[in-house]
Computed example of a mutant assay.
Amino acid sequence: MENIISGAVFGAGLTASGMYQPAVIMGQLKFESFHMIQVFLTATASSACLVAAAQKLGYIHLGPRSFSSVGLFAPYDGNIIGGFLLGSGMILAGACPGTVLAQIGVGVRSGFYAFEGATVAGVLWSGFLQRIMHCPAPVLRNGSGKDVAKKEEVLSVSQGLGVSPSTVLLGFEAACIAAIIAAATLTTLGPEAKISPVAGGLLICTAQFVSILLRKSLMGTSTSFEEVGDWFWGAFKGDSLPRRYNNLLFSTGAVAGAFVLARIFPAVAQVTEVTISPLTASLGGFLMILGSRIAGGCTSGHGISGMSLMSISSFVTIAATFAGGTLVGLLMG
Rank of each mutant, 00 (worst) to 15 (best):
I195G: 03
E227T: 08
L261Y: 07
K237N: 15
I180L: 06
I204E: 02
P242G: 05
V255L: 05
A178F: 11
L203V: 12
P242D: 05
D239C: 10
F259I: 06
P242Y: 02
S211I: 08
K237F: 12
G229K: 07
G220T: 03
L186V: 11
K216T: 09
V255G: 01
S196E: 12
F225R: 01
A178Q: 05
L170Q: 10
L261M: 12
G253L: 01
S217M: 09
S217K: 12
W233K: 04
A199D: 06
L169F: 05
A199Y: 08
I177L: 15
I195R: 03
S251A: 15
A199N: 04
G229Y: 06
D239R: 13
A258F: 03
G257F: 00
S196N: 12
I180H: 02
T221D: 07
I212T: 00
T187R: 12
I204H: 03
T188N: 14
G234M: 09
I204G: 00
G253K: 01
F232P: 01
A183N: 04
S224W: 07
N247P: 00
L248N: 02
G201P: 04
A235R: 11
T223S: 14
A178E: 00
L169Y: 05
S222K: 00
A193F: 02
L203S: 04
A235W: 14
R244P: 00
L218F: 05
L248G: 05
L261S: 08
W231P: 01
G234N: 09
P191F: 03
V228R: 00
L218Y: 01
T252K: 03
C176W: 06
A193N: 00
K194N: 12
G253R: 03
F250R: 01
G238K: 08
R244A: 07
A182F: 13
L202H: 02
G257T: 02
S224H: 01
S222G: 07
S222Y: 04
G220C: 01
Y245E: 06
A193D: 01
T188G: 15
A183F: 09
L218C: 08
A184G: 13
F250H: 02
K237C: 12
A178Y: 11
L189W: 13
V168A: 09
A258C: 06
K216Y: 07
C176M: 12
G238H: 06
A184F: 09
T187Y: 11
A207V: 09
L202F: 10
F172W: 11
L186A: 15
A179G: 06
L249S: 10
A184W: 11
L213R: 14
A199M: 11
S240F: 08
T223A: 14
G238D: 10
E226V: 12
L261P: 02
A235E: 11
F209L: 14
G253N: 00
A235F: 13
W233V: 00
L189Q: 15
T252D: 04
G220R: 02
V260L: 15
L248D: 01
D239T: 15
